[in-house]
C-alpha cells in the first residue's frame, strides 16, 4: 500500500504561490529536525524546481497544474520530494547545470538543486508532463511522522 505523504498539494503555476509553498516546506523540514539553514536550502531547491516548471514547462502561463508531494522515509533516512506537472516535455539532456565561470544571469536553478539535494532525477511522465524526484538525507534526530503513525494505527 502506498504511503501517505507528509505533504500533498496541487496548485496553479503562479509565482505568487511560491511563498506559500516555501512556508509549508520550511515548517515541515523544521518539524523533521532540519536546522533553519538546511530548511531554507530545501525551500530554495523546491522553489527553483517550481520556477523551472512555471517558466520553462508552462511558459509562464498561470493556469498550469503542479503537484507536489513530500514523503518522509525514516527507514531509508531520507526526505523525498516529488514534483509533477502536465506541461510540455523538455529534452532531459538540456536539464543540467551550466558553467559557473560564465557569469551571466539565469541558468542557476539546476545547479542550486544539485548542490542542495542529495539527488535529483527528471523524467517524462507517460501521461504527459514532467516528473522530478529529489531527495535529501534526513537529520539523525528526525522524529517519526505522526500523521503516518496515526494512519498505520488506524489500519491495524
Amino acid at each position: 500500500m502506498q504511503r501517505v505523504p507528509e505533504l500533498l498539494v496541487e496548485f496553479y503555476s503562479r509565482p505568487g504561490y511560491l511563498a506559500i509553498i516555501r512556508h509549508m516546506i520550511d515548517t515541515l523540514c523544521g518539524r523533521l529536525g532540519f536546522t533553519p539553514a538546511e530548511s531554507s536550502q530545501v525551500c530554495l531547491a523546491v522553489d527553483e524546481a517550481l520556477c523551472n516548471v512555471i517558466r520553462h514547462g508552462y511558459d509562464s502561463a498561470p493556469d498550469g497544474r503542479i503537484r507536489l508531494a513530500v514523503h518522509e522515509y525514516s527507514e531509508k533516512g531520507r526526505l523525498e520530494i516529488l514534483i509533477e506537472d502536465d506541461a510540455k516535455q523538455v529534452d532531459l539532456d538540456t536539464i543540467r547545470s551550466r558553467d559557473l565561470e560564465d557569469v551571466r544571469p539565469g541558468g542557476l536553478g539546476v545547479h542550486l538543486i544539485n548542490e542542495i539535494m542529495d539527488d535529483a532525477v527528471y523524467e517524462h511522465r507517460k501521461e504527459g508532463g514532467m516528473r522530478l524526484l529529489m531527495w535529501k538525507r534526513l537529520p539523525r534526530t528526525a522524529e517519526p511522522a505522526k500523521a503516518n503513525q496515526e494512519v498505520d494505527a488506524g489500519e491495524s
Partner: peptide
C-alpha cells in the same frame, strides 16, 4: 529570501 531569479537580477545589474 532570494532565489535564482533574484540573483540573476543582481547579475544583470552587475
Amino acid at each position: 529570501y532570494m532565489d535564482s531569479s533574484g540573483v540573476a537580477t543582481l547579475v544583470e545589474c552587475l
